[in-house]
């Protein structure tokens, strides 16, 4: 059974490489039961949206 540390590590790695089935299934089982890790998974997407926006110059603007 995956713990939260390993589950978040897999979700982080999924940003760099596709996960294998033997990684996906235990991860899915874990996140079904763990709201914290479910939120973490969603936040990986949010972080990417944020970093992409920042790299387009959305940050660092003067106060409007």
């Amino acid at each position: 059974m995956l713990n939260c540390h390993d589950a978040t590590k897999l979700m982080s790695e999924a940003q760099e490489r596709p996960l294998s089935l033997t990684e996906k299934v235990p991860l899915k089982l874990h996140t079904m039961m763990c709201a914290g890790c479910r939120n973490f998974g969603e936040q990986m997407n949010s972080l990417r949206v944020m970093t992409r926006a920042y790299a387009k110059g959305k940050g660092g603007q003067e106060k409007k």
């Binding site: 713990n3 540390h5 763990c34 709201a35 949206v49 944020m50 959305k58 940050g59 660092g60 106060k63």
Partner: peptide, 29 residues
């Protein structure tokens, strides 16, 4: 290896509105 109770991630909701706030980018940086 399980979350410490007070460190467990909470739901953020949709980031779109957040990205429009200049104060958010200062926090982000």
């Amino acid at each position: 290896g399980y979350w410490q109770v007070e460190e467990r991630p909470v739901a953020w909701g949709n980031p779109e509105a957040t990205l429009r706030e200049s104060h958010f980018w200062r926090v982000f940086e």
